[in-house]
Amino acid sequence: MWRSGSSSGSDPVACVACGTEVPRDDAREYDKHGDRWERNGKAFEYLCKPCFRRECHQPRDELESLLVDLDAGEGLSDDEFLAAYVEAVHERYGKVEE
């Protein structure tokens, strides 16, 4: 596949997880909508390779709606939010296996 030529693979990009700047060729595309194959009109964010390897590669079809339902980021402490998240996941999908 030919590159568009609009940006060089050596141009630095910042990892959205850790903030490290790496050359574009050493990063992985991240699409917050979960569909990196539909490229029209998108501006991608990037993950460095170590953060990409730590990322969960499972489907997240209903994650955004779950976070909206929980009012994520709206006045809960981290511990309160995580407890509410785990409870909501158990209610919707059953107990998560470890």
Rank of each mutant, 00 (worst) to 15 (best):
A84P: 01
T20M: 07
D11E: 15
C15Q: 01
V68R: 03
M1Q: 08
E62I: 04
S65I: 13
R60N: 13
R92Y: 11
H90S: 04
E87I: 02
E91M: 02
D78V: 14
F52G: 02
K49E: 14
D61T: 15
D31M: 04
E38L: 09
G9H: 00
L76I: 08
S4C: 13
A72Q: 12
L47M: 07
L66P: 00
V16Y: 08
Q58I: 12
A14R: 10
G75T: 00
G75S: 04
V22G: 00
D11R: 07
L70S: 07
S77D: 08
W37F: 12
L63Y: 05
M1D: 10
P59S: 10
K32E: 09
V22E: 02
N40L: 09
P59L: 13
D25T: 13
D78R: 06
C18N: 10
E97W: 09
K95M: 06
Y93L: 08
S7K: 12
D25E: 12
C56T: 11
K95D: 14
D69G: 07
L66W: 00
H57M: 03
S4H: 11
Y85K: 04
K95A: 03
A43G: 10
R54L: 11
A43Q: 14
S6M: 10
R28V: 15
D26N: 10
Q58N: 12
D78P: 03
Y93F: 15
V86I: 14
D26Y: 00
G73I: 12
V68L: 11
L63A: 07
R60H: 15
A43C: 13
F52D: 15
C15R: 03
G34Q: 01
L63R: 06
E97Y: 05
A27C: 09
E29T: 15
Y30I: 00
E87K: 08
G34A: 08
D35E: 13
E38A: 14
D71A: 13
A83M: 04
V22Q: 03
V86A: 09
A84G: 03
G34H: 02
P59T: 14
D11F: 06
D61Q: 12
V22S: 02
W2T: 11
L63M: 06
G9I: 05
L67V: 07
F52E: 15
G94Q: 09
F44K: 05
S65R: 13
G73Y: 07
E64R: 09
A43R: 11
Y85N: 00
E80R: 02
P12H: 01
S10W: 13
E38R: 15
L47Q: 06
G9R: 01
D31A: 10
V68H: 01
E29I: 14
E74G: 03
A72P: 04
R92E: 05
D35S: 08
P12V: 12
E98T: 11
